[in-house]
Computed example of a mutant assay.
Amino acid sequence: MTVARQFHLVTAVVVTATLALQLVLVLQGGRVLDETSPPDLPVRLARLVAYFTIQSNVLVAVVAWQLARDPARDGAGWRVLRLASLVGITITGVVHFVLLRPLLDLDGADRLADKLLHLVVPLLAVAGWLLFGPRPRTAVRTAALVLVWPVAWLVVTLLVGAATGWYPYPFLDHREDGAGAVVLACLGITALFVVVDAALVALDRRLPPTADSTP
């Protein structure tokens, strides 16, 4: 097994175990962000899936398992999936560190899951791409298609929040600091997505091709 396959396998195992741990905690009524009174199980599961953090980690898991099998994986759809996982998990780490980390007061297994989802997995995913690629695998069209997912997530999240009163992140809740603050947060996060997306595409083109870049 090549070093690239070994690294991707480790990433796949870590992120899968992390998602399993978070699922167990939710099933047991564990806290998600600052919730102190967990709702019924079906609602908890629906809210778990609604978190952008969880969706990003799931994409990383799917990609890592595929790369563990074939480090030179390629294909038009796969390129979008790969870049989406990188953009999503990078944003997850940045937004958590800047906006959410000061709000959290977790301990025990909840704290462990939080650190794995928001710190360890992002570092593994980005490091794996920098070290082993596969590169090159991006284009302008790929980058444009990647943005469909976060924009759709944001629209759906705001619509569901308006209907139910629940938002996965406090900076999307107009009751916290007003609708103006939510608009600014959405614009800022959208701009961050575009910047990270463009930066990864630029790096993909400028960094040396990886040894396993050819299918």
Results as ranks from 00 to 15, higher is better:
Ala127Ile: 14
Leu124His: 11
Val196Pro: 02
Glu35Phe: 12
Gly188Asn: 09
Trp166Val: 05
Ala144Glu: 10
Thr142Pro: 11
Arg205Met: 10
Leu130Ser: 04
Leu27Ala: 15
Leu23Thr: 15
Leu131Val: 10
Val95Ala: 04
Ile54Gln: 03
Gly93Ser: 01
Leu106Pro: 09
Leu159Asn: 03
Thr36Cys: 05
Phe52Gln: 06
Leu117Pro: 07
Phe193Val: 00
Val60Leu: 09
Ser56His: 11
Gly178Cys: 07
Val160Cys: 06
Ser56Phe: 07
Val63Asn: 03
Leu203Ser: 13
Leu21Asn: 06
Asn57Val: 11
Ala76Val: 03
Ala143Thr: 12
Leu104Glu: 09
Val146Asp: 05
Ala12Asp: 08
Asp107Arg: 11
Val15Met: 08
Leu172Ser: 10
Val194Gly: 10
Asp105Leu: 05
Leu48Thr: 07
Val26Ser: 09
Gly108Lys: 03
Ala191Lys: 03
Ala202His: 06
Val60Gly: 00
Ala84Gly: 06
Ser37Arg: 12
Arg137Gly: 12
Leu117Glu: 12
Thr92His: 00
Cys186Tyr: 09
Phe132Lys: 00
Val146Gln: 04
Val14His: 00
Arg135Asn: 05
Pro39Ile: 09
Val80Asp: 08
Leu21Gly: 01
Pro122Ser: 11
Pro42Ala: 08
Ala4Ser: 15
Met1His: 12
Pro71Glu: 07
Val146Glu: 01
Trp78Arg: 04
Ala199Asn: 03
Gly88Thr: 01
Leu145Gln: 10
Phe171Trp: 05
Tyr51Asp: 10
Leu41Gly: 08
Pro71Asp: 04
Pro168Lys: 02
Leu159Ala: 11
Ala185Val: 09
Arg101Asp: 12
Val3Asp: 14
Trp129Phe: 06
Thr214Ala: 13
Asp34Cys: 13
Thr16Cys: 09
Ala144His: 12
Leu158Cys: 10
Ser213Gln: 08
His174Leu: 13
Arg82Cys: 02
Asp34Gln: 11
Thr92Tyr: 00
Val15Ile: 11
Ile91Thr: 12
Ser85Cys: 09
Arg205Pro: 04
Val15Ala: 11
Thr16Gln: 07
Val87Lys: 05
Val146Ser: 02
Leu147Ser: 09
Pro71Ile: 06
Ala202Lys: 05
Val160Met: 12
Asp70Asn: 01
Ala179Asn: 13
Val24Trp: 15
Arg69Phe: 15
Gly77Gln: 10
Gly161Arg: 07
Val121Pro: 04
Pro170Leu: 10
Leu187Lys: 01
Thr92Trp: 01
Thr210Cys: 00
Leu119Trp: 04
Met1Gly: 10
Ala84Cys: 14
Thr2Glu: 03
Thr16Lys: 07
Tyr169His: 02
Ala50Lys: 05
Pro208Asn: 11
Ala152Gln: 03
Pro38Trp: 13
Arg69Ile: 08
Leu41Glu: 08
Leu103Arg: 07
